[in-house]
Write a protein that binds this DNA or RNA. Sequence first.
DNA 1: TTGCAAATGGTTATCATTGTCAATTTATTT
DNA 2: AAATAAATTGACAATGATAACCATTTGCAA
Lengths: 155, 155
Amino acid sequence: MNNKIRNKMELNKQFRQFGHKMTSGRETTIDVLSETDEHLSAEDIHIKVHSVNPKIGLTTVYRTLELLINMGMVSKFDFGDGRARYELAEGFKGAKHHHHLVCTGCGRIVDYSEFVKEEKTFFKRIELELSRKYDFRITNHLVQFYGLCKKCEGY
Amino acid sequence: MNNKIRNKMELNKQFRQFGHKMTSGRETTIDVLSETDEHLSAEDIHIKVHSVNPKIGLTTVYRTLELLINMGMVSKFDFGDGRARYELAEGFKGAKHHHHLVCTGCGRIVDYSEFVKEEKTFFKRIELELSRKYDFRITNHLVQFYGLCKKCEGY
DNA sequence: TTGCAAATGGTTATCATTGTCAATTTATTT
DNA sequence: AAATAAATTGACAATGATAACCATTTGCAA
């Protein structure tokens, strides 16, 4: 049994665990997210999905993304340009823990995964204490750096 | 010379340093931001500004907020509900360093300012290294925690 | 005070995202 | 394999936050 089929079966299971059905549009969307290292918007994703499976509409892509977010398979980011970006969540298909540097000049995004280990330790402690103090069940966190990339710094 | 007048003069100077004029609308907007500990949207701010100074329109509030962000006096946040929130930046009018816990259930926001000192040390080091490695002049960072507040945890 | 650039307000335009609903597809049962 | 019920979908319209426009007003330096 090859990887593609196995993966399909695993996805199927995932969806059913959440009470949802596995469809070709959803599969294609996950494939697109798996095969990119860009920071795609819903429309970007739709274009790619559409080129594989022209039947899939933008609305469905939005709905699928929302579903995947709820299932914890996708993360949604706001880099300040008015459209959300989506990435496969950490742990899925080899996506690894990283954060973003956002250039406030040109919007360029740099991924970095340095300090992951230290950060984990640091945040684990903070999350524990904040959870207690404020009666919050913290599920995840966001870290983002803003600044100017080399090109934009010149001004 | 009382505080209000002195403050007005300081603001005036601030604006002129950035090549802008000091206007009553801008002053009112800053007053509103100074006097709240809520997480106001542009429309929220407009309502408050408007109640003091009915001549000021929503468009101007948006423009003023953008300007204040560029001047570093205001910070803009996205808590995921489709409308931006604005706060006086750290250091202005006694606003102090803090971050947010965001309840993904009801949208409630909790401010916290624990760990400020440790966090500063931690991020200073990270920023230095990332700046070097990725040729980025990092100017600020965002930290946000997501989870469920006590009420929403019940489900 | 006067001149002029900057700022404003009311309105309209934009554009990402969501709602609607009839038609289709999925997974399950016979 | 056909029937079934429920979930999913696609095309389009609606929404809503924010930005663009432009004629009028205002702040401030000379």
